[in-house]
Structures are given as C-alpha cells and as structure tokens.
Design a protein around this nucleic acid. Structure first.
Lengths: 339, 339
DNA sequence: GTGAAAGCGCTAACAT
DNA sequence: ATGTTAGCGCTTTCAC
C-alpha cells in the first residue's frame, strides 16, 4: 500500500508537505503543490483514513441502529439518515438489532471500540438503558430514534404516539364505533406502551369503558405475527367493530386474518393503524392510518447528533407531529352485525 | 478516553500484558490476568479498534454498495450480507449508490481511504468499470453482486438472467401467447441487457418474430417509472397479449397502468416479471415470476470476499439458478381480444 | 514555505 | 510470564 512517505520521496519533499497538500492547507507554494499532486496521481495514493482518525481522534462516521431494516418505515428512515450524513461529510454504519437486547449491546460495544462519532439508536426496549449508559459513560453523543426509554431523559427524535393514537381512536368513535380493539406490541417498547395508554385514555375520555378482552399483544416484526386474535371468537354482540393496529406489520397480519375469517373491511369491521402500509401502487391506499415522516426523522437525527458533536450540552428533543389519513377502511359505521 | 496505558498503570503491568489479556493470549498468569481484567472493568476500558486496525492493517469491515435499499430485493440481500458478515466477525458498511456512477465512485474512494477489507458491489452499470479498476489497482478484494460488467472477468455472485427470462418467455408461449412485450431497464446494466437478449432469443427459437414496437425501456427504480407504454396504443390486432417486466418495480408500475386502462390481468393481458413483488400478506401472490434468492446471494457474496481475503487468487464466480413461479397472472391464453 | 521530531493507541518481535 | 523497543500512517508543534 502506498503511503505518505512514498509520495514524499517521489516528490522530494517532507511528509509534512504532502500532508499539507492533502489537506488543502494554504501555505504551500504552487510549484511544490503541483509536484506533490503529480506524485499522488502517479502512485494512485489515497490517504489512510484510519491513520488520520487515530491521530484526530474522530472517525467521521455515525452509526444507526434500527430494529428491522425490512420494515419500510425503517428503510426510509435509513435513507434519510444516510443522505444527510453524506451531505455533512460523514459515513453511516448501519446495524440491525432485530429488537434483540443482546445483539444491540454487542453492536454498541463494537461501536465504542471503533470510536464512532455518534450513535442514533432505535432502542429495542426499556432494557436498552444499559446500552445508553455505556454510550453516555464513554461520552459518545447519541440520540434515540422513534422510541424513548422509560426513566431516562436524553436527546431524541420521535413521533407522537399519544396524539396519533388519540386521533385514530377519536376518529373511530366519531364514525360510530363503541367496541374498539387494540393490538399492540410488547409494552417494554415506549411507542407500544404509549399507543396502548392513549387508546385507553381516549376511550375513557369519551365515556367508553375499557374491555381487557379487546386488548391483545403481538409484535412489531412481520415474522413474529400471530394469526389468532381471541376477540374474533367473541359473541357477536360483544365482538369489536373496529381494530387499531399499533404498526403497519400488525395491520398487515390483521388484514390477512380478517380475510381468512371472511370479514369485509369497513363493512364488517373497521381497521386503522400506525404508519403507512407498503402497497403495490395499483392498489389505492384504503387503510386509515396515522403516519409519521421516517425520512425526515432520519435526517433530523443526524442533524441532532452533529449539533451534539459540536456542543455536547446541546440535548435536542424533537417530536414530529403525526398526520391522520382517513380512508375507506373506517367508513361511517352502519351498525351492521359482524359476519 | 481511557487507553491501554491507563489500564497498565492501574494494574501495575506493562501495556503489552494488557494487550495480551485483551487478545486472550495464553501466556499470562491467572493472577495478572485477573488484575488486568479488574482494571478494565473499573475504568470501563474498550480497546481502540482504530489503533488495532492501523497496526494490523485490516479493518474487519466489509462494504456493500447497492443501487437502492428501498427495493425489497436489495433489502433482503443486505440482511443476508450483514448476518453473514457479523457471523464471521466483520462489520458491514452499507452504501446506496442510487444507480449513480458519480456517487458510486465517490463511495469507492472513501472506502479505499478506510482500507476496507473487501467490497461487494452491485454495479450501477458498465461504467462501473472505473470503480472496479481502482479497487483492483489498490488490491482490495471485491465481488460483483447481482450484475456483471461488460468486458471484465472477475469474481461475482449473480442470478441467471438469461435462463430466467427464457423460462418466463417460454412459459408465455406455451400458454398460447404470440405477441409478447418486454419492458426492460437501461441496457448498460447487464441484467437488463441479458433479459432483453434472452427475450428476443427465446421468441426466435420458437419461430416468432421480434417486433421492436413491443420492446420498451424503463428503469429499475420505482421512482423513475414511466406510466405510458406505447404498445398499449396499438391496434387491437397488433397489441401484445402478454408483457414481461424486467424487475419487480417495473411490474408494479405496469399493473397500475393496466388497471388505469381497465385491462384485467390474465384475461385481457398476461403479466410476468423478474423477482418477487412485495405484496401485503392478505393478497395471495398472483404474479408469475422468476425469482432469485437475494438473502442467499448476500450471504454468498460475503463468503466469497472472505475467501479472497485469505487467498487473493481465489476468484469465485457463482450463479444462482432462478425459480419459475407460475401463478394466475399468466393463465392459459383464451384468445380473448384486448379490451 | 518547508521540515524534524514526537505522538495518536496499539502490538509484533525481541528480550529477559 | 512479563517487559522493552519500534513502528503502523498520519498530523501537530515548533523550528528554520
């Protein structure tokens, strides 16, 4: 591998001069600069970023840990983060934690070793507190993305699960629904917890009672979906007339299960969910959703980290407002009985 | 940041001894080891991978450059590569080139600087030859993924576009189609070129003529799709009764366009494509496809790179066989006229 | 405008 | 079993 020494020798200057040329410093005479540039060309020299990083004590690299790149929501978020990072002269290291604490910890450890400049983390759950502690401890700037962690105050870029769910549930109530079910993810994940809480709170605020049999736990991952929901076995009079799914993948599974039960969306049972469902473009979006802007959230997280790199005290907390998209899956309830 | 010196001082040993403990070398007495481990615990020391890399002259990191992480085909491929890389003790650096040569080149340059151990590249097109040359020149192991480059013999992991297309077109002919259209991507991309060539070859092999008006160029990207296909304006007697799309996103757009024209799939016009279309799970897959195994391809590419790292002469060329999935979008042709 | 020396954090190659 | 020396490729500091 050709080094700065090879260039120095060929150009008949010191390594310092080569370094100055590489880093575009002013104080190099035009002749010398050209001589050096020629040598660089000739030997195809590329400065060793590792050596530069060791010396400068920064990597010009940010890490993004997501729970599942397979979810379009996170794919978009990743694109946002990558584009913004590159724009600012940083590279992005992407890691999939699969919502697995052990994997998350092991990634964080590796990143600490790499002296990454900053970490954006979609925490696997409240247990991610450990990961956060080691980052904080090591003085590595970090920001939580999409999810918070119970009992910790730190930089984060999230959506607004409470407000989003409130809008969703209120919309269903306004459409005439009284028995609304909720399928959430494990409650150690802040968004799942908040969506569940806001669901209950909104029911109560409307004078409706909370029926525990209508609340079911599933997972955010597509591959971990169950396909039996106990509330579908209930007596017709008790069965829910609408269901809220805590994310797009849960909604996806729900739609399939309902189809298997020969239930027609909206007529037999209304469906609404958090985040957009990825549909082939020939299908007009028909699902009522509350959506968040994943691309912008990814971008914002990078900005947030870079500000913290400049000023470690700059703890940013940004919450993106959700948008309610009312579509045909929640048409006005006609009181039709369930199948 | 705590260094190996801090540990050495606290444990009252030399840095070398600390290094030995870190690297799990045998020749350290149990007592010393424990003393050192204690110090490491106490100070929360994490070895600086950058310094290790500089010294060892390897990064334990592989790079994967894909054209579009947004395409589920590449998302899966990325997962395959990441999982395999991690299993082998490597990290994966992910880059999106957006099928843009300039972006690709700039990434490659950055990677050269980082002294990445190996590069897996989905080339943007035949112009990627430049990128490849600089990698080869620098002696960095690399392998092409999914696509080849015209006029270069190198390590690669691909599918079999020719055979896949042959199966697809032959299937359509066997179903009774005689006028089959093809929508391909730009022809500087090997898969697009091969799919187009194999399409023509298969027609000829069956004694059918090639009608240039039935061949249209589009893009592999979802966002770059056109929505007007000239062949849909043709006289009923000349219009194609079946269309082959060179990838999933083209098929997606095609389905939408056909729906806009009120054409029913299979009855009015048959549709088949390369790679699977991502559908919500409540929709039974209905599109006839030739699929390739992206996850396995990603895994294989990592293996391929690692073998090259061990033995730089080990040029691997692996071609995954495609699988034809016959579904209802290409039922037997009834000779029904186009709408 | 240019260069020599020292050091970033770590480890291979020698000592002892 | 443990320590010393030197150096990975680069840049900062301080001379000239």
């Amino acid at each position: 591998m050709v080094t700065i020494y090879d260039i120095a020798k060929l150009a008949n200057v010191s390594t310092m001069t080569v370094s100055r040329v590489i880093n575009q410093k002013k104080n190099v005479s035009k002749e010398t600069r050209e001589k050096v540039e020629q040598a660089i060309q000739e030997l195809n020299y590329v400065p060793n970023t590792i050596a530069q990083s060791l010396q400068a004590n920064r990597m010009k690299t940010l890490a993004l840990l997501v729970t599942d790149i397979t979810n379009p929501f996170f794919t978009q978020m990743t694109r946002g983060a990558e584009d913004e990072a590159n724009k600012q002269g940083y590279q992005l290291l992407l890691c999939n934690t699969d919502e697995n604490i052990a994997k998350e910890k092991s990634y964080i450890l590796a990143l600490l070793g790499k002296r990454i400049d900053g970490v954006m983390l979609v925490p696997s759950g409240d247990e991610s507190l450990d990961s956060i502690s080691s980052l904080r401890q090591a003085g590595v700037p970090f920001t939580l993305l999409d999810r918070n962690i119970r009992g910790i105050e730190c930089s984060h870029v999230t959506g607004d699960s409470k407000e989003g769910t409130r809008q969703l549930v209120q919309h269903l109530i306004d459409q005439g629904h009284r028995r609304i079910a909720m399928i959430h993810a494990p409650l150690n994940i802040s968004t799942s917890r908040e969506r569940n809480e806001a669901y209950k709170a909104t029911l109560r605020a409307n004078g409706l009672s909370v029926d525990k049999r209508l609340i079911v736990e599933s997972h955010y991952h597509l591959s971990k979906q169950s396909n039996t929901w106990s509330f579908l076995q209930m007596e017709p009079a008790e069965r829910p007339t609408a269901v809220v799914a805590a994310n797009n993948f849960i909604a996806d599974q729900l739609l399939k299960t309902l189809a298997d039960h020969d239930l027609t969306i909206s007529e037999d049972i209304a469906v609404a969910c958090f985040d957009e469902l990825l549909l082939p473009s020939y299908i007009e979006p028909f699902l009522t959703t509350v959506s968040q802007p994943p691309y912008a959230m990814g971008q914002r997280a990078v900005e947030c980290i870079l500000e913290q790199i400049k000023d470690p005290e700059a703890v940013q907390q940004e919450q993106f407002k959700p948008t309610l998209h009312v579509r045909r899956s929640t048409n006005e309830w006609r009181g039709a009985p369930l199948a």
